[in-house]
Amino acid sequence: MLQITCPYCGPRDETEFSFGGQSHIARPDESVDDKTWGNYLFFRDNPKGIHYERWCHTQGCRQWFNVARSTVTHEIKAVYGMLDPKPEFES
């Protein structure tokens, strides 16, 4: 069970949150070719290490935010705002 510190509500159980997948994905311009568009839609980072991901406090304040988390130990390294740059960690 993860304990996630919502930036607005404080530490809560994982079950209050929804996982939103990889963060920091920029939508490409609509004029791009199929290859670029396919990559944008379907291809995600899948690191064995630090993953930069979105979570939503669905059963609390309903706010989205970012988390940097290890996919091996599940340790949460950082919680930061949707528009903040991603903090760098050694993977």
Binding site: M1, L2, E14, T15, S18, F19, N46, K48, H51, E53, R69, T71, V72, T73, H74
Partner: peptide, 13 residues
Amino acid sequence: DVHNSYAQRGTVP
């Protein structure tokens, strides 16, 4: 489990 993981153990929920 709901999130990306390479841990071969699974979580409690």
